[in-house]
């Protein structure tokens, strides 16, 4: 996972992706947060629109 590239200007450069093993699993924990957050945001917008249209109807 920790694979240095060819020296560049005398220093060793590590691609961020080379450390993917450290962080890829974080995405699995982030997924429910993003899914629920997006779902609630969409639902909130829809309800706000419905309230507005109910108000203008009345």
């Amino acid at each position: 996972m920790h694979r240095p590239l060819a020296p560049l200007g005398g220093s060793v450069v590590n691609l961020p992706l080379a450390h993917a093993g450290h962080w890829y699993h974080v995405l699995l924990y982030l997924a429910p947060i993003l899914l629920i957050g997006a779902g609630l945001w969409w639902s909130s917008r829809r309800e706000a629109k419905r309230d507005k249209s109910d108000g203008s109807d009345g």
């Binding site: 924990y29 982030l30 429910p32 947060i33 629920i36 957050g37 609630l40 945001w41 639902s43 909130s44």
Partner: peptide, 13 residues
């Protein structure tokens, strides 16, 4: 809804 999202975030984190 916001609090729920943050609670889910705290749980998953």
């Amino acid at each position: 809804y916001w609090m729920l999202t943050v609670m889910v975030a705290f749980t998953c984190i």
